[in-house]
């Protein structure tokens, strides 16, 4: 058949580009920056995490050592907090995704015909950023305090136990995390969905896929870069967050996350090795998680 005639016209891999000294030279400031502001603190953190208490030292005095038991000790002491951090962050990320996706889809796809509405909604998504994160969280704490209108109404409607609380509960912390990080989910989702070529959706519908299947088999996979970016931008800071879970904000003694433990160890207990070891554990778990996640989500082609 005639097809054979043009079957050879395949995409060829690009020839490797010639290395340029100038390019390397231009990279230098970036590398220096990374060494100075990323590598240095990292090395410092690792060294601190291995310190041992000074033999005759006072509180907060440690010496460089190879005291790897610090890691065992913090895991033993704070395993519930470690699990809680990732648990809360996961739930908050899933909730943020569930709230954000329809919103981002509406702004990015459905509202394309009305650019004014699109911009207005984007502004509304970003608007909370204009007010300090702390103030917003404190405002929620007030809005949902025991004697607030919302809580007393819920109690009056028997939707909440008469002696129930909102602040200081895991629910409050997850609520805070979800609320505070939702824009970080919505914006990457929006930027992917905004570029979503609806012709693919029409093609799917043309190929006998109903609306749900089109969404599942085409829209979701094509918006995967946004989902991955959004979930990472939400999950990573949420796992390390210490504001929402803090007792001063939405948390209570039984909702403390790793960030709070690190803060207490660093500031109050002056136990710098424990704080450093926890930070490294947090970082390592997140790195592993991100690695596996990016690999499993199969977005290499789309990223």
């Amino acid at each position: 058949m005639a097809f054979a005639a043009f079957a050879t016209a395949e995409a060829l891999p690009q020839a490797p580009k010639r290395r340029s000294r100038i390019a390397l030279f231009l990279l230098l400031p970036g590398i220096l920056y990374l060494v100075l502001f990323f590598l240095t603190p990292l090395v410092s953190l690792v060294l601190t995490s291995l310190q041992a208490p000074s033999e005759f030292g006072d509180i907060g005095q440690y010496d460089y050592a190879f005291n790897w038991q610090n890691y065992v000790a913090v895991v033993e002491a704070y395993l519930p907090h470690i699990l809680r951090s990732f648990g809360y962050a996961l739930v908050a990320t899933v909730l943020a995704l569930l709230f954000s996706y329809p919103l981002a889809y509406f702004i990015g796809v459905k509202a394309r015909r009305w650019p004014l509405l699109q911009s207005l909604m984007l502004v509304l998504v970003i608007a909370p950023f204009f007010i300090s994160f702390l103030l917003r969280t404190l405002a929620w704490k007030q809005i949902l305090s025991d004697e607030s209108f919302i809580i007393t109404s819920l109690k009056a409607l028997s939707l909440m136990a008469p002696d129930g609380h909102f602040t200081g509960t895991p629910f409050a912390v997850i609520f805070g995390l979800t609320y505070n990080f939702i824009p970080f989910m919505t914006l990457p989702l929006y930027s992917t969905l905004e570029r979503l070529d609806t012709r693919y959706l029409e093609a799917g519908s043309d190929l006998y896929a109903n609306a749900f299947t089109v969404f599942r088999k085409i829209t979701i996979p094509l918006s995967m870069p946004g989902i991955v970016a959004g979930t990472l931008l939400t999950f990573i800071p949420a796992a390390g967050d210490y504001i929402n879970a803090s007792r001063d904000f939405l948390g209570g003694p039984d909702t403390q996350m790793m960030g709070n433990v690190i803060e207490a160890n660093f500031l109050v207990l002056q136990n710098y090795p424990a704080a450093a070891a926890l930070s490294i554990i947090l970082m390592a778990v997140i790195l592993v998680f991100v690695g596996v996640y990016v690999k499993r989500s199969g977005t290499e082609d789309l990223l």
């Binding site: 012709r199 693919y200 093609a203 085409i218 996979p221 995967m224 082609d301």
Partner: peptide, 10 residues
Amino acid sequence: VFQSYALFPH
């Protein structure tokens, strides 16, 4: 058969 082909890239 669409003008843009609309082959699913994923």
